[in-house]
Write a protein that binds this DNA or RNA. Sequence first.
DNA 1: CAGGTGACCTTAA
DNA 2: GTTAAGGCCACCT
Length: 134
Amino acid sequence: MDSTGLNEQLPHIDDGLQSLSPKPSPKEKIWHIVAMIPKGQISSYGKIADYAGLPGRARFVSTALKQAPSNLTLPWHRVVNSQGKIAFEKHTPAFREQMQRLVMEGVLVKDGRIKLSQFEWKPDMATLVLAMPF
DNA sequence: CAGGTGACCTTAA
DNA sequence: GTTAAGGCCACCT
């Protein structure tokens, strides 16, 4: 492991996502992208929407995550808002779980916030295009 | 069917 | 650095 703790290997696509229909629904596209966020890195609802080809639909990303089947075991905790803050209200169980999961991966969470400049996932377009069936 | 809600975003103070 | 308003749109009720 390197000093940054961010030197994870390429993210694996969850098995549950391998067998998506040839024409993924918007929700499935979002699940796909979220599954690609590497351990120790984060992205935002808006960016995920962009990567999924659904610009302007950040809110839909949260809807999609809420509705994701648990068997997909998505890394939902790697998605925060555009300010780098955990979207759940502080002192809620969800907030604590998300923070705990992030810290476990080596992400620095200070006062419910993460420095995007340090931890944001920046996929290159080629990776996205190649990894996704759409 | 109509209106409300929300794990959001950008912009403008 | 903040916050507030307006926009957004799929899902719920």
